[in-house]
Design a protein around this nucleic acid. Structure first.
Length: 513
RNA sequence: GCUCGUAUAGUGUAGUGGCCCAUCAUAAAGGACUCUCAUUCCUUUGACCCGGGUUCAAAUCCCGGUACGAGCACCA
């Protein structure tokens, strides 16, 4: 029956078109047509679930062990954009609870908020430092012990690994509340040394996912040897929460409603959800993104970069070869380009690899209209001109915007410089000036044929200059001549037929084509 | 090994059972405009991982395979 009617409808649609069927339906059963509107392509970020009737709170939580990098920008942009779209709150939280493996960098506490503001065009709504909130985490740890869903484990890490793998309960698991409280105090007062004891969350050793079995929540660090870099914290605390515990408790304390994080933290979500169940809390709505690799950059990590900078491989965090926000900023990448780039990639869980060209194309859109044109001649060759050479030539600053005025070029010496490669041509046209015939003989002022158009500088109106190309591993410097200008350092210009570049103290830094 | 996740044009992305011989961007190729290899505009090329199943109907749901990635740290 159904099959027959559907077949009939389909033939009808094929013969007379879909519109015909629709009009028939319109007459016979208009209610079926509702909600059948052609779906528009979704723009921007996927909608957040579960947003009704509450103030939306998101957070971006980096380890302040260095300035922000390209990858961090995703966290800032996605969380910041969601917060903005929902008129909600963006928290910038420093997860600075490790003083040994990835110790925080003091400067980062100042730098990161500025970088977030640059990237979003507005500051984070609230800044939270985990290291300021240790007593709060202690309170929750104690509650965990008193209510029996946490315990002090004194097994060596290796032993516990075996228990986890073989689904055996660790002997410490059955300690009484009193023993656990005693153990906790011994962790706090220094009786236990780093490695002697940890606080674990009691989950279930039979859990299918080994990562979730009685996971560690707090441990002891030697803060005499490795003090926290913040002077006000220093060696104050010996017991420190691990990420999963600190983050989970802090999200609850801050009223975080939505978490957007990398899918490498999926098991963290599960661990933390188990903890939330113990506490009787509701875990925030969580979405994930996959790994992003940039084709041109290998695997940089903050700690690796820090080491490479310290041993002199790079000039600093703002080295243009580095995928740091500072490096990118120095290369003339606009915050808006970064925002558009990350929003376009969205929040899929796919692991992706993107070419830098995608970022550059966003950047070009933002800078082209305002970038004055300038001629830079690489490997210059002198050419003496003959004929009736005007003493001054005017060229527009920007071909699409007359309002940006003219560049005046003085030709007193009748000598120009062109690129060695262009000098191969026997005849050519000097852009915005005149045709040149063999031997530097000046020809027609108006364009007379299809000879190649090349850029050039007047020897009088140009100066020595260096163009710097930041490549993957090394930096290339090209000597040349640039036409005289008085743009300040930091101006983004377009070097004709080369690409966009940013003016620095001593050179031009090529950004991209 | 155990556990979890993802698979749509070269690269990203839209799509949640009929609107889809599949969207948009970027890249590539060609063209228009232009005294730049820029900008802008136009055109073309190009994809649902494989195999089963469910269904009248599958990119979409289910199962299996394959590939890739992640977690199993007293790092974040």
């Amino acid at each position: 029956m159904v099959a027959q009617s559907v077949a009939k409808a389909n033939t009808l649609a094929q013969e007379k078109g879909l519109d015909h069927v629709e009009s028939l339906l319109q007459e016979e059963a208009p209610h079926l047509l509702e909600g059948r509107k052609k779906q528009e392509r979704r723009e921007g970020l996927p909608p957040l679930k579960n947003t009704e009737g509450k103030e939306i709170v998101l957070r971006f939580a980096p380890n302040p062990n260095g300035p922000l990098s390209f990858g961090h920008a995703r966290g800032v942009v996605i969380n910041g954009t969601y917060a903005h779209e929902h008129k909600g709150t963006l928290i910038l939280r420093f997860d600075d609870t490790d003083t040994t493996v990835k110790p925080p960098m003091l400067d980062a506490y100042e730098i990161i908020p500025r970088e977030v503001e640059w990237l979003l065009g507005r500051p984070a709504d609230r800044i939270v430092l985990a290291s300021d909130r240790i007593p709060l985490y202690y309170e929750h740890a104690e509650r965990m012990l008193r209510e029996g869903f946490g315990y002090i484990c004194q097994c060596p890490a290796d032993d516990f690994r075996t228990y986890r793998e073989t689904k055996q309960n660790c002997p410490c698991r059955d300690k009484s509340v009193e023993m656990n409280v005693d153990g906790w105090n011994m962790m706090l007062d220094g009786t236990y040394k780093p490695g002697d004891a940890v606080v674990r969350v009691k989950t279930d050793m039979e859990l299918k996912n080994p990562a979730l079995r009685d996971w560690p929540a707090l441990r002891i660090q030697d803060t005499q040897k490795n003090p926290h870099p913040r002077p006000e914290i220093g060696s104050t605390y010996r017991v420190w929460p691990l990420l999963d515990f600190q983050s989970a408790v802090e999200d609850q304390l801050q009223g975080v409603t939505h978490i957007v994080r990398g899918k490498d933290l999926m098991d963290s979500t599960r661990k933390q959800t188990l903890l939330y169940e113990h506490f009787g809390w509701n875990y925030p709505e969580t979405i994930y993104w996959g790994r992003v690799k940039v084709h041109e950059w290998g695997g940089f990590s903050t700690s690796k970069m820090r080491a490479s900078i310290e041993n002199g491989e790079y000039t600093g965090w703002n080295d243009p070869r580095l995928p740091t926000l500072q490096g990118l900023q120095l290369r003339g990448i606009q915050a808006e380009a970064l925002r558009n780039f990350w929003i376009e990639l969205g929040v899929t869980q796919k692991d992706i690899s993107v070419p830098l060209a995608t970022l550059f194309s966003h950047n070009t859109k933002g800078i082209d209209d305002e970038a004055p044109r300038l001629s830079f001649v690489r490997n210059p060759v002198e050419v003496d001109l003959h004929g009736e050479i005007p003493t001054e030539i005017e060229i527009p600053v920007h071909p699409n915007h007359e309002s940006m005025g003219m560049r005046k070029i003085s030709m007193d010496r009748n000598q120009i410089m062109i690129e060695r490669e262009d000098a191969q041509h026997s005849t050519y046209r000097l852009k915005e000036f005149a045709d040149i015939d063999e031997g530097g003989q000046m020809g027609s002022i108006s364009r007379s044929d299809k000879r190649p158009i090349i850029h050039w500088v007047s020897t009088d109106s140009s100066s020595e200059a260096t163009l710097t190309l930041p490549l993957q591993e090394n930096i290339e410097h090209i000597q040349g001549r640039v036409e005289l200008h008085n743009y300040p350092v930091g101006t983004i210009v377009q070097l004709e037929r080369i690409g966009y570049a940013i003016i620095r103290e001593d050179d031009f830094l090529l950004m991209h084509e």
